[in-house]
């Protein structure tokens, strides 16, 4: 009798898991596995069917200069956007958590970039960056700076994309920090204040450690976003000039849908997945030990 009950429970358990399992398998695991298989074959055409080529696509990847350039671009992009947007988000959150006039308006202003559609954001910044008549050049000309081709100069284009991304992401991350800050008891700060701790000391020893769970969450999001960027590049630069602003996912998108080389795009995707998996595991194991969860 009890054995029967146990097996029924097991059936219920699997039934409860089933919907999530079906969707995860159909849209995450199956595509991952099939991508890996596709990457082991050559790209087929009507006259030349695809054949098994083993690691040849990966071999090609190692020799592909554009791949390396895009990878380095992406590392710079990540290094430029992740720490900056998190730091700015934290500063803004601490600021708008204070009592200040028109606090709601300030919070909303900071959050606005997040609610704008990506394409709209790119169009706004396209105007900012336009040489001669764009916002930045017009402001610069007042102070006597020469006109810059922000998106056309290989030296400047990645930096310009980074600035725009920070602008868009900081407000989003701010909301998480703001929520976390409001869950902290003000008495903690008062107690530290009574002991003579300076604001910086309170931030360093009390506030920041207690915000660590949020920081982990935000960092993971920032890392994911740093390899997810396609739409801005599509509007602003198309990866150019000379791939100076192309990032991994945009390159994959180009290879797959412009050059129609599905096999090579699959190999690139597998590399991206492996890198992301390593980063995620590293973040959870390294940071988890140092985080105080309530």
């Amino acid at each position: 009798m009890s054995e029967h009950k146990g097996s029924m429970n097991r059936v219920y358990g699997w039934l409860l898991l089933l919907p999530a399992m079906v969707f995860l398998t159909a849209f995450t695991y199956y595509p991952m596995v099939s991508t890996f298989f596709v990457s082991l074959f050559s790209d087929g055409t009507a006259t030349r069917p695809s054949v098994f080529v083993g690691l040849e696509n990966y071999q090609f990847l190692l020799e592909d200069d554009i791949f390396w350039k895009v990878l380095v671009n992406n590392l710079w992009y990540a290094a430029g956007t992740i720490p900056t947007s998190i730091a700015i988000a934290l500063m803004m959150a601490i600021w708008v958590n204070n009592r200040l006039p028109a606090r709601g308006l300030v919070r909303m202003a900071y959050f606005t970039p997040t609610v704008l559609p990506m394409i709209a954001v790119a169009n706004i910044w396209l105007f900012f960056y336009t040489p001669e008549i764009g916002l930045f050049d017009q402001i610069g000309s007042v102070f006597g700076f020469p006109s810059q081709n922000w998106l056309g100069d290989p030296e400047l284009v990645l930096g310009s994309i980074i600035v725009m991304t920070v602008w868009k992401e900081a407000g989003f991350f701010m909301i998480f920090y703001l929520a976390a800050l409001q869950s902290l008891s003000p008495e903690l700060e008062e107690a530290a204040h009574l002991e003579g701790a300076s604001r910086w000391y309170i931030f360093r020893r009390i506030t920041f450690p207690l915000l660590m769970p949020t920081t982990l969450f935000v960092t993971i999001n920032a890392v994911i976003n740093s390899v997810k960027m396609v739409d801005h590049l599509f509007i602003l630069t198309k990866g150019g000039p000379d791939n100076a602003s192309s990032l991994l996912l945009y390159y994959i998108f180009e290879v797959a849908f412009s050059f129609l080389d599905e096999a090579y795009a699959s190999a690139l995707t597998v590399v991206l997945l492996v890198v992301l998996a390593i980063v995620a595991v590293g973040q959870f194991t390294l940071m988890d030990k140092r985080i105080h969860y309530r």
Partner: peptide, 29 residues
């Protein structure tokens, strides 16, 4: 400011720092 008044305070919620050990809490000041 509070720190210059040479007083201690016990709060209703105790205001202990949750991420610090008992010893670290006590010697915080």
């Amino acid at each position: 400011p509070p720190a210059a008044r040479k007083i201690s305070m016990v709060f209703q919620s105790y205001a202990l720092f949750p991420h610090l050990s008992v010893a670290e809490n006590i010697i915080f000041g």
